[in-house]
Amino acid sequence: MQEAVASPLTGWANFYVIIGSAAAALTGLMFVVVTLIAGLRRRRSSGGINAFGTPNVVHFCVALLIAVTLNAPWHALWNAGLILGLCGIGGVAYIIIILRRALRQDDYTMVLEDWLWHMIIPFSSYSALVVAAILLSSHPVPALFCIGAVTILLLFTGIHNAWDALTYNAFDLHPGDSDQPLD
């Protein structure tokens, strides 16, 4: 019984080692970047960071959690499906919280690209994770491909959004102030 259950996950081990390592490294890098930016920019409300910075760390951590979950030695796929399903439900709820934060903050006005990368793609990813988690026991091969796609999408979303936030903070936040020292 264990061999039949372990076989679908075994083929994904290297994939999740790579994804998990990338997610962990990017999470650490976010701490470094935020620390460096905090020392260079003028003090503003934390609304922008809560709406546009913190979710990137969450997406990286969820990618890491998925990687760890699918590398664990499960005796039955439904156990992994339960963890992944809860992760997906938590992600959907978190995106709703982020939507509220983004609408309440006044540091930045979102454009179409922001709606896509900060709300629609993550919401769709976490929703797909819930569906794939439900189907994991009965249809492991397509569910695992869906979970793999979700994990990559969360990783790329975090990378895109982190880059977007970094360039905004570094270049667009105070245009014309490049010669002025920041307080």
Results as ranks from 00 to 15, higher is better:
residue 64 L to F: 14
residue 88 G to M: 07
residue 33 V to T: 08
residue 87 C to H: 00
residue 61 C to W: 10
residue 31 F to H: 03
residue 55 P to Y: 00
residue 64 L to I: 10
residue 45 S to T: 13
residue 91 G to S: 04
residue 62 V to I: 13
residue 73 P to Q: 10
residue 87 C to E: 15
residue 25 A to Y: 13
residue 53 G to N: 05
residue 80 A to T: 13
residue 62 V to P: 03
residue 84 L to W: 14
residue 27 T to Y: 15
residue 85 G to K: 01
residue 63 A to E: 01
residue 26 L to W: 14
residue 24 A to C: 09
residue 50 N to S: 14
residue 88 G to E: 06
residue 21 S to L: 08
residue 54 T to S: 02
residue 65 L to F: 13
residue 16 Y to T: 05
residue 42 R to P: 00
residue 85 G to E: 14
residue 59 H to P: 00
residue 33 V to D: 07
residue 31 F to Y: 12
residue 45 S to E: 13
residue 86 L to G: 15
residue 34 V to E: 08
residue 68 V to N: 00
residue 66 I to Y: 04
residue 62 V to W: 02
residue 78 W to P: 00
residue 34 V to K: 05
residue 24 A to I: 10
residue 35 T to E: 11
residue 91 G to D: 01
residue 73 P to Y: 02
residue 56 N to V: 11
residue 91 G to F: 01
residue 21 S to R: 07
residue 36 L to C: 09
residue 19 I to D: 00
residue 74 W to S: 09
residue 28 G to T: 02
residue 88 G to Y: 08
residue 67 A to V: 06
residue 87 C to L: 15
residue 76 A to P: 03
residue 57 V to N: 03
residue 24 A to W: 01
residue 38 A to V: 08
residue 77 L to V: 07
residue 41 R to D: 05
residue 40 L to F: 11
residue 47 G to I: 06
residue 83 I to W: 12
residue 66 I to L: 11
residue 50 N to G: 09
residue 53 G to K: 00
residue 62 V to H: 02
residue 21 S to T: 15
residue 37 I to C: 04
residue 49 I to N: 09
residue 48 G to H: 09
residue 33 V to K: 04
residue 53 G to W: 09
residue 60 F to W: 13
residue 55 P to A: 02
residue 64 L to P: 01
residue 77 L to E: 07
residue 81 G to K: 05
residue 75 H to C: 03
residue 77 L to I: 08
residue 18 I to R: 00
residue 76 A to F: 08
residue 28 G to N: 04
residue 81 G to H: 03
residue 62 V to N: 02
residue 40 L to I: 07
residue 64 L to C: 06
residue 20 G to E: 04
residue 28 G to V: 03
residue 57 V to D: 06
residue 45 S to W: 01
residue 16 Y to V: 12
residue 36 L to H: 14
residue 19 I to E: 03
residue 46 S to E: 10
residue 23 A to L: 00
residue 39 G to Y: 06
residue 53 G to V: 10
residue 75 H to I: 01
residue 26 L to G: 04
residue 48 G to A: 14
residue 14 N to T: 13
residue 14 N to M: 12
residue 83 I to L: 15
residue 51 A to F: 09
residue 51 A to W: 05
residue 71 N to E: 08
residue 41 R to H: 12
residue 43 R to L: 00
residue 49 I to M: 12
residue 44 R to H: 09
residue 56 N to A: 04
residue 16 Y to N: 14
residue 53 G to L: 10
residue 64 L to W: 03
residue 69 T to Y: 10
residue 39 G to C: 05
residue 36 L to Q: 13
residue 48 G to W: 08
residue 80 A to Y: 11
residue 76 A to C: 05
residue 74 W to F: 14
residue 84 L to D: 10
residue 55 P to S: 04
residue 70 L to E: 08
residue 65 L to R: 09
residue 43 R to V: 04
residue 21 S to M: 13
residue 89 I to E: 05
residue 70 L to G: 05
residue 79 N to F: 07
residue 90 G to K: 04
residue 30 M to K: 03
residue 45 S to R: 13
residue 60 F to K: 00
residue 77 L to M: 08
residue 52 F to N: 09
residue 54 T to G: 00
residue 21 S to P: 01
residue 50 N to F: 03
residue 23 A to K: 12
residue 63 A to T: 06
residue 17 V to E: 02
residue 29 L to T: 09
residue 50 N to K: 14
residue 20 G to W: 00
residue 35 T to Y: 15
residue 29 L to K: 02
residue 80 A to E: 10
residue 65 L to Y: 12
residue 22 A to Y: 14
residue 50 N to I: 02
residue 92 V to E: 07
residue 22 A to N: 05
residue 73 P to G: 12
residue 46 S to H: 14
residue 43 R to T: 04
residue 67 A to R: 04
